[in-house]
Structures are given as structure tokens and as C-alpha cells.
Design a protein around this nucleic acid. Structure first.
Length: 507
DNA sequence: TTCCGACAGTGGGGTCGCAAT
DNA sequence: ATTGCGACCCCACTATCGGAA
């Protein structure tokens, strides 16, 4: 199959806003692709590369060679060149990558270049990723979408699952099972504004657990072989020896456990997320990193205990199995209650101890791998500040032509404003239109084509999760997960919150 | 007919490791 | 030694479609 076939299908998918139409376009192409190219086609059309990452990003794709006029590149040829690009390493590798990239792009027509460039950057923007591709695979193969989805959660890689479905139908999909040593897409949580709201949504007694601000881990053990994966299914076994040892020390030898690793201070309070994250990312001298920043692990779920798969069992049953496999000190603190007051007390206690909040779990829910099901609901405290808009950046995609990303400043009592970060979240289309007009009227200083500086006159209420240390911003601090709540036309900039107020929240 | 679950898109800050400068 | 880049850790929120109610 030719790359141009995929580029055309992708364009058709992007042109139709209806999901069912997108599915039809994708399924039609999947019906034509041969078995040896099915995996590549499914990957490309769901916005993934079979190589996962290439070492090529936005910067390497800035100036591309002139396109050709005739479309002749096959999927196999493109895939082969991408494989060679990924394989480059060591001194001279960046030049070698660039040379291969130029060779590849010089063999493509303009629409192919556009498609592949977006794909490599991870910005296909055709309105179809895994969720839509699952339906397309189901339609093209005749297998129920639920079977495709289940195989995906067990295998973690849709192109492989889709190719199997196309060649072997439902039978092939059922061959995907939970395999120790191969990560499963982790279950995700929805969020709620309060514990009461979360309990209400679950509608009855629920299990509450501390939400630790660390890195999600899935630990597998078969005999003495232990492996550890992140939320995105990256293998981090070598970076977390403490966790490997802890799992190896358990009495049961056939396990898949779900939990969180976190760096704790000697007094038991959590280190800032930055510390845990940096420790987990350290690869070059793990022994040294371990001495300076030891990790603790807390488990909250079990997908397999003593050789038995638990995915389809209710949460309370899985937790009972977890408690059987793991000593109490490795369990995430948990309270089962239907009482709102007790639940709120548990939440308050977790937050006072420095943790992020709680996750409220429905006791009857199975492990909904890879989905943000209603079974888990996270609750975190929300802070707000009234800040001043210092500038805005032009948006992209559906925000093209709108001023989108806001630069936020706190008032400096000595005069002026100190930038604390940016946000694009929380804005409705109506607000985007309004602020674009308003900012252009307030514009000042030279425009660089990307950022519009504005006179600091607009006060905006910003919600955020916390204040973190920053080397990027002049005040030495930045907001975590900042989002717009509303504009405050009733406030003037001299009524905005001060840098001191923000600093007092950094503790 | 209305409601709501699931998805995709639009970007945020921080850190590490590597190659180039 | 420093800088730029890519990859990946954490993520919130809105708009939209289409099946459920």
C-alpha cells in the first residue's frame, strides 16, 4: 500500500466531523491493506509510529526538502527508513538522522509530507486516535468493539491488536490474555470537586484511598523475575531497585500489582513531585540516586495474585486479594465508608499530611484498564488566586486566530508584576473570542508574531493545584496545573494577589 | 427529546540524558 | 561547561458526537 492512500484517508477523516463517518473512512482503508502492512497502517492512522519514538521532533522537521510530484512511496519503504532513523546513536547521529529524514521527505509529495510530518510530531489532528480506531478495526474485522477494546487493554498496543483482528477475527483477539511481564493499560480516574460529590456519584459506600503525588507503577512478578512499568507502559525496572526488592520479598511469586512510588522525607511527609520525578527519571547512577533520594512504594490494586487474574472482579475483592499478597505497610491507606463526614475527615487528614488528596472507588467496579471509568474518582483541594494577564499567545488548531495561552502575573508590592506561568485551560469559545478582541485593544510593545503583550489591566481568577519551585520564572516559582475560573471585571490590578501570598503557598 | 459518557484537542511545568556548540 | 532537543513524568478543561434514558 502507498503512503498517499493513508494521507488521503487521513484527510477524509479530518474533513468529516461525524465519528461514524471517520470510522467508515478508516474501516474502508483497513479492508484494503495487506496483512504485512496492516500494523503500520493502523499505527499511522491512529497517530502512532510503530517505532514509538524516533529522536525526531518539531525542530528537526522545520525545513523539509522540496516535495516530488508523483506519489510512489510504499508503507514498507517509509517504515524501513523510520527504523533506520531511530537506530542512529552516538556522535554524528543528529546529522545522520537529518540526512535520512531528508532522503525520506524528498521522496514524498506535499500531502504525504504534511501527513508524515504531523504524524512524527504527534499532531495528526484528524479527530481520530485509539478510540475511533478501535471502532474502525471492529467494523473492518467483524469483531465486536468490546473484544477489540479488551485485547487492547491486555496488549497495550492497538496496531498489534488491530492487525490480529483483521487477520484472525474474534478468535485472534481472544488469544490476548494478561501476561506477566507485559504491561496492561492502567485504569484512570475521573475527578470530582468534593468528596461529597464523589460519594454521591458512586451512590453508596465507597473505598477512599490517599492520592500520593508520585509516579504510577505496575509491578509484575513471575518467580524471581520482576519488572516495573509506568502509566505509559515504559519499562523503568532498572530505575527503581527498591521496588524490585520489595516485590521480590513478597511471599507470592505470581503477581501483577498497581501502585505509586514516591520519595518521602525522613519524617514521612512526601517530597515535592519534582523530587520523585527526577529520581525515577535518573538512569545513569541509580545507586547514587537511591542513596540520596530513596523511594517508597504503596500499592492500591492487584490485577493478578498467585496466578489468578482479577481484572473482572469487583474492587473490594481485588483489594482483599491485594491485602493477602502485600504487607500492611506497603498498602495505600484506605477507608471504606458511606458516611460523608468520615470521608471528609479522611480527605482532610491526607491533605494535612502533605498528600494530593484521595481517590474514591466504587467497591463493585471491575478494573477498567485504559479508561477513565466511573469506578475511580479523584478529589483534590483547589486553590485560587486573582492574577493579572501580562500577555497572550496565538492559539493553534481549532484555536487558530484566537489569543489563547495567557501569561499570568502576581502583583509585586514594590511595583509591577511577576510572571508565574501560563494557562490555556478553562476557556470557552465565547471567552476566547472575547479575550482576543479585548487583548488586541490592550496590546502594547512590539509584537513578535507569537505573543501579544498587553497592558496589565485585566484580573483573572486562576485555579491551581500548588506552587512549585521554578528556574524558568523570575520569582523562582510557578503554578502547577493553572486554569482559568473566570475574569474579574470587578477587580483592578492593584487588587490582584501579591507575590508574597503566592510564596506563602509554596511550603 | 434530552442527557451524559467517551474522545480528541489544546496546551501547562519540570527533569533527565544526549549530542552539538 | 552550556545549550537545545526529545522523551516522559505529572496533568485540566471544553466541545462534540452519538448512544442511553
Amino acid at each position: 500500500m502507498l503512503l498517499i492512500d493513508l494521507a488521503r484517508t487521513s484527510a477524509a477523516v479530518a474533513a468529516d466531523s461525524a465519528r461514524l463517518a471517520k470510522i467508515r473512512h478508516l474501516a474502508e482503508l483497513l479492508g484494503r491493506v495487506g496483512p504485512d502492512e496492516a500494523e503500520t497502517a493502523i499505527a499511522y492512522l491512529s497517530g502512532e509510529l510503530p517505532q514509538r519514538q524516533l529522536g525526531v521532533g518539531f525542530a528537526s522537521l522545520r525545513d523539509l526538502p522540496e516535495p516530488r510530484l508523483a506519489a510512489t512511496a510504499t508503507l514498507s519503504r517509509v517504515d524501513g527508513l523510520l527504523r533506520r532513523i531511530k537506530a542512529q546513536s552516538g556522535p554524528g547521529s543528529q546529522a545522520a538522522r537529518k540526512a535520512l529524514l531528508d532522503e525520506l521527505f524528498a521522496s514524498l509529495t506535499r500531502p504525504e509530507q504534511t501527513f508524515l510530518s504531523r504524524l512524527i510530531r504527534g499532531e495528526l489532528r484528524q479527530g481520530a486516535l485509539d478510540g475511533v480506531m478501535i471502532e474502525a478495526v471492529a467494523k473492518a474485522s467483524g469483531a465486536p468493539a468490546a473484544e477489540v477494546r479488551r485485547a487492547l487493554m491486555l496488549r497495550g498496543w492497538l496496531p498489534a491488536v488491530g492487525a490480529a483482528a483483521l487477520s484472525g477475527g474474534v478468535e485472534a483477539l481472544r488469544a490476548f490474555t494478561l501476561e506477566v511481564g507485559r504491561p496492561v493499560s492502567p485504569m484512570l480516574a475521573q475527578s470530582a470537586p468534593s468528596v461529597a460529590a464523589a460519594l454521591e456519584r458512586i451512590g453508596g459506600p465507597a473505598a477512599l484511598e490517599w492520592k500520593l503525588d508520585g509516579v504510577r507503577v505496575q509491578a509484575h512478578r513471575s518467580g524471581d523475575a520482576v519488572s516495573v512499568f509506568t502509566r505509559a507502559l515504559e519499562d523503568i525496572t532498572a530505575q527503581v531497585p527498591e521496588l524490585v526488592e520489595a516485590v521480590r520479598a513478597l511471599p507470592l511469586t505470581d503477581l501483577v500489582l498497581d501502585g505509586e512510588v514516591i520519595a518521602l522525607r525522613p519524617d514521612g511527609r512526601p517530597e515535592p513531585f519534582q523530587v520523585t520525578s527526577g529520581r525515577v527519571a535518573s538512569r545513569t547512577d541509580v545507586a547514587r540516586a537511591r542513596r540520596s533520594t530513596p523511594l517508597s512504594v504503596f500499592f492500591f490494586d492487584a490485577l493478578r495474585v498467585d496466578g489468578a487474574d482479577l481484572l473482572d472482579l469487583p474492587d473490594d475483592t481485588r483489594h482483599a486479594e491485594l491485602a493477602r499478597a502485600v504487607p500492611a505497610e506497603l498498602l495505600t491507606p484506605r477507608l471504606v465508608t458511606g458516611d460523608v463526614a468520615r470521608a471528609e475527615e479522611f480527605f482532610g487528614d491526607a491533605v494535612r499530611r502533605g498528600h494530593e488528596g484521595v481517590v474514591v472507588k466504587s467497591p463493585g467496579s471491575p478494573y477498567a484498564a485504559g479508561r477513565r471509568g466511573a469506578g475511580w474518582i479523584k478529589v483534590k483541594p483547589r486553590h485560587t488566586l486573582d492574577l493579572v494577564v501580562l500577555a497572550a499567545e496565538w492559539g493553534s488548531g481549532r484555536r487558530e486566530g484566537r489569543l489563547s495561552n495567557l501569561h499570568l502575573g502576581a502583583r509585586d508590592p514594590a511595583g509591577g508584576f511577576v510572571m508565574l506561568g501560563k494557562t490555556f485551560k478553562g476557556l470557552t469559545d465565547e471567552l476566547l473570542a472575547w479575550q482576543t478582541e479585548r487583548f488586541l485593544a490592550l496590546a502594547e510593545g512590539p509584537a513578535d508574531g507569537w505573543t501579544v503583550k498587553v497592558r496589565p489591566e485585566l484580573v483573572v481568577e486562576i485555579a491551581f493545584d500548588g506552587v512549585q519551585r521554578s528556574s524558568r520564572y523570575p520569582g523562582g516559582m510557578a503554578l502547577r496545573f493553572a486554569r482559568v475560573v473566570r475574569y474579574r471585571p470587578d477587580k483592578t490590578p492593584d487588587q490582584a494577589d501579591t507575590v508574597e501570598t503566592v510564596r506563602s503557598l509554596m511550603l
